[in-house]
Design a binder for these strands. Structure first.
Length: 557
RNA sequence: UGCCUGAUAGUAUAAUGGUAGUACGACAGAUUUUGAUUCUGUUUGUCGAGGUUCGAAUCCUCGUCGGGCAACCA
C-alpha cells in the first residue's frame, strides 16, 4: 500500500504541471498533442523520448495524439521514411488518433499567406539569398528592411500568385513576414515564409512549386488540428514569439508551444545528419544496423518497447542540457530481459571435456527456462560423455579466486553433474586439446546426495548434439563519451571493434526452435535474439546486451 | 558581447520557504546450480558572493559557467 502510494505521488515534470494547471483552470477541457517528425530519416532514441512524452501525456490525461509528418521540404523527404516512422511509433506501443501531413494543409497555408499580405504583414522579396542574410544584421546589430518591403498589397498578391503559377525560378523570389527587422530575436527579422522549389513532393506531386517554411507550417498545422500543447525541443525557444505572432495575426486557434531538452547519450551521436553520414559512408550497414541508436536498430538488436519506454520514463523531462549514461539504457533492457528471456546454453569458444567414467548413451537433463518466471517451465537437454565448455572456463594454472575448472578442481555443470578435472591433454604445439574429467554420479542436479559444495557452475553443450549458429556481438559505436563535442570530425572517434562476429558457436539443440519475437539469455553470456539475416542453413543471433560480468572486472584489476 | 535559456553527487532526476531524497554507476559484503538475478551497506551534491527570513536548493541582487539564435533546413 505504502509502495503504491509512493508510485502515485511520483512528482510531475514541468510539462505535466502545465497540463494539470490548464485542465484545472479550464483553459483546456481535453488535451491534444502531436508527434511531428520530418520524414527525412529514421527515428532515433531521442525521438523515442519525444514520442513517449507526447503520447504519454495524452494517455495520462485522457487526451489524444496526432501523428503529423512535417513534410514541407520536398527535396529531402521520402515515403520510405514515412513508413519506417509509422512502424517505429507503433512498435513503441502508441496509437495515433489521426495521421496527418503538413502537406495536407498546403491550400490552407496558402490562404493564410494571402491573409497576411492583405493585412500588409507579408511581402514578396526579390533579393538574393546572400542579400537577405546580409540585411538581417547580426545578433548585436539590427537588420535593415529593403525596398521590397514597400510593395503594395496588390503587387504582393499578384507576385505571390505568379510565384505559385511557376513564373519564377527557384530562389528568384520569396515571401517574407513583415515583423520587425530590428528585433533582438533574430527569428523575428522578417522571416522567409514561402520559397520557390520546383521539386516533386512525395504526396502532393507536382501540384506546388512554392513550399512554406517550418515557421509558417508548424504552428499553423498545430492550430488547424486544435493541438493544445505543442511540445518541441529547446532549439525552438527563439521561434516561439514567431509561433505566437502568426497565430495572433491569423486569428486562429491558439496552440501553445513548450520546449524540453533533447536527449543526448554517451558514446552516441544523435543527429539525423550524422546518422545519415554513417549509413551513406558505410560505417554501418544500414539505418537498422544494430549499432545505430535508431529505434529500428534497437528493435533489430533485441531491445523491447517496454525497456525503451521505461528508459524514457527514468530520464525524465527537463530544460537543462543532459548527457545520459548509456548504462542506464542497458540497465533498462537487462531488467526487462531478465524477466522474459528463456535461458539457453551456448558455448562461444569450445574446449572439449571428456568424462572418462561416464557411459550412459542417452541421458537427458532438465533445466528451468527462466528462474525469474512464476511458471517454472523447463526444457530437456541431452548430456553425454563428450562436452564443450568455454575455453575461458578452464585454467591450467588457475588465478586467485578462479572458481572454474582447473586440474584437480571441481565445478558444477549447470543442471547436470559435478565434475573434477583429472588430466589435461595437449597438442604437439603445447596448446590444450582436451580436458579429461570424472563425474560424480550422486551429484546430479535436483538429486544431489554428494554433500559437496562447489563454487563454480559452467554452461556446456554435448558435442554430438550441439547445433551451430553465428553470433554478432556489438559494442558502443564510438570510443569517446561525447563524439560530437570532440575536436575534428566525429567519425574519427568510431570504435573499430564495435562489431565482433563469431561465425560458429555451439548451442544446445533446443535453440533450433528459436523464434524472431523471442528473447534468449545465453547463460553467463548475455541476451540474444534471432537476426533477420538468419536462413534455413544458418541461424544468426544478435547480442542485445551482455550480462554484467564482475569476474571480468576482477581480472582487469 | 545583443536576445533567449539553464545550473542539485560521476550521470540523470526529486524536494514548489521547513530533515537535500531516488535511480543508474562505482565500491564492499550476503545469498546463489548463471561470478547473472536478488538483498544489504558505503561513497560523492545544492555554481559563487552578498541579501531577505526564525529558517533558503527554493525568494532578491550581482557575478561565473553551459546551451541555443544570424539556412530559401526542420
Amino acid at each position: 500500500m505504502e509502495e503504491i502510494k509512493k508510485e502515485e505521488e511520483k512528482s510531475l515534470n514541468f510539462i505535466e504541471e502545465i497540463v494539470e494547471e490548464d485542465l484545472r483552470s479550464g483553459k483546456n477541457k481535453n488535451i491534444l498533442t502531436r508527434f511531428p517528425p520530418e520524414p527525412n530519416g529514421y527515428l532515433h532514441i531521442g525521438h523515442a523520448k519525444s514520442i513517449c512524452l507526447n503520447f504519454g501525456l495524452a494517455k495520462k490525461y485522457g487526451g489524444k495524439t496526432n501523428l503529423r509528418f512535417d513534410d514541407t521540404n520536398p527535396v529531402t523527404e521520402e515515403t520510405e521514411y514515412v513508413d519506417s516512422i509509422k512502424e517505429d511509433v507503433r512498435w513503441l506501443g502508441f496509437e495515433w488518433a489521426n495521421e496527418f501531413y503538413a502537406s495536407d494543409y498546403f491550400d490552407q497555408l496558402y490562404e493564410f499567406a494571402v491573409t497576411l499580405m492583405k493585412k500588409n504583414l507579408a511581402y514578396v522579396d526579390d533579393s538574393k539569398s546572400e542579400e537577405i542574410a546580409a540585411q538581417k544584421g547580426t545578433p548585436t546589430e539590427p537588420g535593415k528592411r529593403n525596398k521590397y518591403a514597400e510593395r503594395s498589397i496588390e503587387e504582393n498578391l499578384q507576385l505571390f500568385t505568379d510565384m505559385r503559377a511557376g513564373k519564377y525560378a527557384d530562389g528568384e523570389k520569396v515571401l517574407r513576414a513583415k515583423v520587425d527587422m530590428t528585433a533582438a530575436n533574430m527569428q523575428l527579422r522578417d522571416p522567409i515564409i514561402y520559397r520557390i522549389k520546383h521539386a516533386h513532393h512525395h504526396r502532393t506531386g507536382d501540384k506546388w512549386c512554392i513550399y512554406p517554411m517550418y515557421d509558417f507550417a508548424h504552428g499553423q498545422s498545430d492550430s488547424i488540428e486544435n493541438i493544445t500543447h505543442s511540445i518541441c525541443t529547446l532549439e525552438f525557444v527563439t521561434h516561439r514569439p514567431l509561433y505566437d505572432w502568426f497565430i495572433e495575426h491569423l486569428e486562429i486557434f491558439p496552440s501553445k508551444q513548450y520546449e524540453f531538452a533533447r536527449l543526448n547519450m554517451t558514446f552516441t551521436v544523435m543527429s539525423k545528419r550524422k546518422l545519415l553520414q554513417l549509413v551513406n559512408e558505410k560505417f554501418v550497414s544500414s539505418w537498422d544496423d544494430p549499432r545505430m541508436p535508431t529505434i529500428s536498430a534497437y528493435r533489430r538488436r533485441g531491445y523491447t518497447p517496454e525497456s525503451i519506454r521505461k528508459f524514457a520514463d527514468k530520464i525524465g523531462v527537463q530544460k537543462r542540457e543532459n548527457l545520459i549514461d548509456l548504462s542506464l539504457l542497458e540497465f533498462c533492457i537487462r531488467e526487462h530481459l531478465n524477466k522474459i528471456a528463456h535461458r539457453k546454453m551456448v558455448v562461444f569458444d569450445p574446449l572439449k571435456v571428456v568424462i572418462t567414467n561416464y557411459t550412459d548413451e542417452n541421458e537427458i537433463v532438465v533445466s528451468e527456462n527462466n528462474p525469474e518466471d512464476e511458471e517454472k517451465t523447463t526444457r530437456e537437454i541431452p548430456f553425454s560423455r563428450e562436452l564443450y565448455i568455454e575455453k575461458e572456463d578452464f585454467m591450467e594454472n588457475p588465478a586467485k579466486k578462479f572458481f572454474r575448472l582447473a586440474p584437480g578442481q571441481k565445478v558444477r555443470l549447470k543442471s547436470a553433474y559435478i565434475i573434477q578435472c583429472e588430466e589435461v591433454i595437449k597438442n604437439a604445439d603445447g596448446s590444450i586439446a582436451e580436458v579429461r574429467c570424472i563425474y560424480l554420479p550422486e551429484s546430479k542436479s535436483g538429486a544431489d546426495t554428494s554433500g559437496l559444495k562447489v563454487q563454480g557452475t559452467l554452461h556446456w553443450v554435448s558435442v554430438k548434439h550441439a547445433i551451430t549458429a553465428e553470433l554478432r556481438l556489438y559494442d558502443r559505436l564510438f570510443k569517446v563519451q561525447d563524439p560530437s563535442n570532440e575536436e575534428g570530425d566525429f567519425k574519427e572517434y568510431i570504435n573499430p571493434d564495435s562489431l565482433q562476429i563469431i561465425s560458429t558457436v555451439y548451442a544446445e539443440p533446443s535453440l533450433k526452435n528459436a523464434k524472431f519475437d523471442e528473447r534468449y539469455q545465453f547463460l553467463r553470456k548475455g541476451y540474444f535474439c534471432l537476426d533477420k539475416d538468419s536462413s534455413e542453413e544458418k541461424m544468426v543471433f544478435n547480442r542485445t546486451v551482455s550480462l554484467k560480468d564482475t569476474w571480468a572486472k576482477e581480472l582487469k584489476k
